[in-house]
Design a protein around this nucleic acid. Structure first.
Lengths: 255, 255
DNA sequence: GTTGCGATGTTAACATCCTAACATTTTCTG
DNA sequence: CAGAAAATGTTAGGATGTTAACATCGCAAC
């Protein structure tokens, strides 16, 4: 690839990274070349840019770099996740402070938060922050630290310290596996302390998972089922299981 | 607007918030309606979605919610900012740890970081994090806290504490105003402590500003010019000014 | 029921985009 | 400087997206 092409691609990238989209002809004008050359540039580095009908957008790996995982999972259980978050959204109340866990499920809950609800959101994942930071009437507290691409989340001792100082009305916790006797688990060990602290600091604790997670086990256990007040789930939950949950004091929120 | 339309828009939004784009026909299939209805849905809530040639993308207000400011500024000094960051990028070295300040200038520097450079980036702004978190070979440390939409950045006492524990090879600091006698200033008071701590913890201190910032003053002063080792700027700097800077011990990096 | 209205689907004309082939310019090399 | 190769520009035709007008459906009020 020639120097000029590489330079053009760099300029394109830094323009697009700043956010938004670019008309093909605007890009051509910006770079001082013809539209055809821009097309060829983009084609030459396949995947670095998303090319949609006359527009150029940033790479397809948006949402904090876990694009691949996200795409795979999207096709899988997206409708169930959305249903689970529909249930969870009924627990949102204006003016309250909520903790939103990381993962691909809770993004649906984040987008359900009304823009003008004066809700305070505490989070520690890029994909959640990207959604809630755009809402003008939502106050956001981000727990920072070292980035973990596997879940697009951050962790650090100082963040835990910060979280301990925050009063939470409702903690919305996600999980990779829910096992009735073994407990609730996730894939990443660094999430354990954060989830546990959020649960400890919250008045109301809500588990947000789709029904495919039941019976599953992931490497990092972080809580038992009876730690939660509510289970927000799609309607795929077996009735026998729902009854055992109710007996354990976990209220199943209808989707 | 009907209930069904509102519901469709919600489903669209939560699908798109998760990241990426949607083909119009995929969206139509997902929602179980015709393409034309999807078009009408999107048109009915103008601005909530970006509609580009056959694809649907999330709202135009990307980049941490400061879309408006960003767009205004983009037209203004984007080429100068890019040039300033070209200069700054020459100071990047593989394996090192860098601090990247918030603002619309430093995004260009962030996108210049090679994906496989094994660089560690310390940042505290959404628009910077969105860029660097996508690069697999870049380690990211995010300083969290309360979100400030004006600069898409976070601040908190705990983050300052975290920053104090991080050794920085090069701190890339941006500014809203650079005045030779009064000093260097920015628009947001919460940034002051972070910038000062980053400067204090860095071996090399680089000021990254375009030449339009010279002579300007913003409400929050945070440093003097001679605190910096390098000035990364576009080539619009008057030679008399450059000479005075050199005399003060600030090396002007050629763009 | 049926009448009316809004929502949705369908079609066709139109505009735009995309691709490939070829023409031109630039760059590199001997 | 000549020649070749790469890069870029131009054009044209097919593919795709867009819009407007009209047809149909579903629901609610009378």
């Amino acid at each position: 690839m020639s120097m000029r092409r590489a330079e053009r691609l760099n300029r394109l990238q830094s323009t697009l990274d700043a956010g938004g989209y670019l008309r093909l002809k605007d890009a051509a004008h910006l770079l001082g070349v013809s539209e055809m050359t821009v097309r060829r540039d983009i084609a030459s580095c396949g995947g670095r840019f998303a090319y949609l009908g006359g527009y150029i957008a940033g790479g397809p790996e948006s949402a904090g770099g876990m694009g691949y995982i996200l795409d795979r999972e999207r096709d899988a259980h997206i409708e169930m996740k959305r249903a689970a978050c529909d249930a969870a959204a009924t627990l949102l109340k204006p003016g309250e402070t909520v903790f939103i866990d990381c993962g691909t499920t809770t993004t649906h809950l984040a987008s359900r938060i009304p823009a003008e609800s004066r809700i305070t959101v505490v989070c520690y994942a890029m994909n959640i922050a990207e959604i809630v930071c755009r809402k003008p009437g939502v106050r956001v507290v981000m727990l920072g630290g070292l980035y973990h691409a596997s879940s697009a989340s951050f962790s650090s001792p100082e963040s835990l310290e910060m979280l301990r100082g925050i009063g939470i009305n409702t903690a919305f916790i996600s999980a990779g596996g829910v096992h009735e006797s073994l407990g609730i688990s996730c894939s990443n060990f660094h999430e354990v302390e954060i989830k546990q602290t959020a649960i400890a600091n919250a008045v109301t604790k809500a588990l947000v998972v789709d029904s495919s997670k039941f019976g599953q086990v992931k490497p990092a256990f972080f809580a038992k089922l009876d730690s939660f007040d509510f289970l927000c789930c799609d309607d795929g939950l077996e009735s026998a299981r729902a009854e055992r949950l109710a007996a354990a004091g976990v209220h199943v929120v209808p989707a």
